[in-house]
Design a protein around this nucleic acid. Sequence first.
DNA 1: TTGTACGCGTTATCAT
DNA 2: ATGATAACGCGTACAA
Lengths: 354, 354
Amino acid sequence: MSDSDDTESGRRRHATIVEVADRAGVAIGTVSRYLNGHPVRRGNREQIEQAIGQLGYRRNAIAAAMKADLTNTVGFMVPSLSEFHAPVLEHLSRAMRRVGRALLTYCHDANPASIADALDFFVTHRVDCLIMDGRNDVDERILELIGNGTPVIFYDNGWPGLPVDRVLVENRAASFRAVTHLLDIGHSRIAVLTGNIGDWTGGERFEGYRQALLGRGIEINPDYVLDSHWYETEAYSGMLRLLSLPEPPTALYCCNYNMAVGALRLLREHGLKVPDDISLVSFDDVPLFQLHDTGITAVAQPVAKIAETITSIMASRLSDRGLSHAPHTITLNCDIILRGSTRRLITPQALGSR
Amino acid sequence: MSDSDDTESGRRRHATIVEVADRAGVAIGTVSRYLNGHPVRRGNREQIEQAIGQLGYRRNAIAAAMKADLTNTVGFMVPSLSEFHAPVLEHLSRAMRRVGRALLTYCHDANPASIADALDFFVTHRVDCLIMDGRNDVDERILELIGNGTPVIFYDNGWPGLPVDRVLVENRAASFRAVTHLLDIGHSRIAVLTGNIGDWTGGERFEGYRQALLGRGIEINPDYVLDSHWYETEAYSGMLRLLSLPEPPTALYCCNYNMAVGALRLLREHGLKVPDDISLVSFDDVPLFQLHDTGITAVAQPVAKIAETITSIMASRLSDRGLSHAPHTITLNCDIILRGSTRRLITPQALGSR
DNA sequence: TTGTACGCGTTATCAT
DNA sequence: ATGATAACGCGTACAA
């Protein structure tokens, strides 16, 4: 057999366009045009198709990418594949398939070095676009990508300021509504487990909490505000601290899913019931919350919509490159899913104000 | 500025190795050697580093890949980013970073066309390796990859037969132990919600159930065996059917997480309690199961170990290509996590046998 | 050690 | 519509 050869790397060499052209008795230009859907004379087309079949020819997208400066590859980087990020990735992946691209996926460790590693990979592999959770500590490599015209899209997080597109949700307003719900049913001692206050998202969610309370004339009690940095473990210990307060809260607002899990775990181990002993509302809606006992009232982020929006921004950026519009920031709405994790409280004040 | 140029695509052109060589006053061969860590004369090295800095040069991994026939890119394809696959992907992603690779991620729709699309992408983009959930319906493209020496690694599923490496878990034995636990505490009317019986994994998990029952001399009651095809929705309706049986089961074995969620949802809507009204054991251990009321007894798959094993198989395949060893099948152990979802049943038989 | 020059597989341009 | 040929950016023999 002379159709295939072995390379020193132990991999069988792929047939090339040149071999196809030879066997079909046409020029490589003709084959290239055939491959790219341009018109080709009927007889030639048949010859080419036959040659391709016989040789098992497969287009080398790497070579094409080098020529076209387009890899059809999109960088995707998140801190973890949590219950929030995993569905986003799944939706994105399906959307990308529709436009003939795929995602180069990286999980960073939230430390600068790992982020730098990932970005180096993306830059050197010439991704067409970069999608990532917004960071505050901006790596120079992100600026580099922006500088050479690669669209960068943040989602979920990240301060305004950097010239990138952003797909965010109405964190502050949704938090406000969630906490207001607790106020409406009579709670005033409401604690919060916040994400990194330094993050835009963490700050906004806290701010919604703050405004809701202040709006009802309730002062913020520092003992009720615990920065658990988005982590389950810190929420777990934070919850313990809340319970040991002389006047523990009657309700709890968790700024993400992980922290709700931490809090629930501790409550469970201490034999405390939601909502009998404490009411609970959380950001992020996950299967767990539908099934947990009475169900957990939660803020549902529009995951599918987030992925769609990212995809369409990418498409428009990629179609008219060069014309660089100002960056967009798109803010999507959240739904509050009411379940059974909150209990109406009849407070002395409430009775008095009737 | 003449340092940078604009391409017609609207993207700024990257500096090349040639420009670096020019500016550094050395030959491109020298720059290339410098980049790849080969020895270079001190003075030259400094010149090169300076030039790289000034030009903002970044190695073009695409061009390198074309030359080396190595993309440092690994295909990853799964049906969804479920609570099982997402953590596997996360672990894999981190492991890949350590070896300078990244995953091209695809979610297929379990239909042949979408799988073919993904495989086409992988083949044309010349991934160094392919990692996927094992399929029974083998696409010709998988054979093509194998044929040209690209390692293919199945996990989670897939019939033996195809010459690929496999990383599986002891589905049958773990199922056997899980069901045996139910038997030990007095249950004999045990129903099962199975995954696709046609899948290897689905078949094995069912087989473990079957053998456990037969081992105790209990015949398989067809009414108690429902093929829910891994889906939550089908488990939901299947559960309904079980409850309407003249003699409903006292215990339920769910062959994956999704189906457990479906069953739990229906039970909840019907006001039935686990384990008071029915005992439950499930495959897959997820946060939900830790927190659900009394906790759900579950079979925990060794997710991190799965990812590690895949990575090391990949490494060895890639290091000595050419020498094609016979394919490995590695079977990992599962743990059974006992929680509160099963209730000891005092049956007449049990009393009699004392 | 360094420089030169060719090849990797495509696409695109220019005549024909 | 087709054929010949020049890029694309890098790695690497080979000669110096």
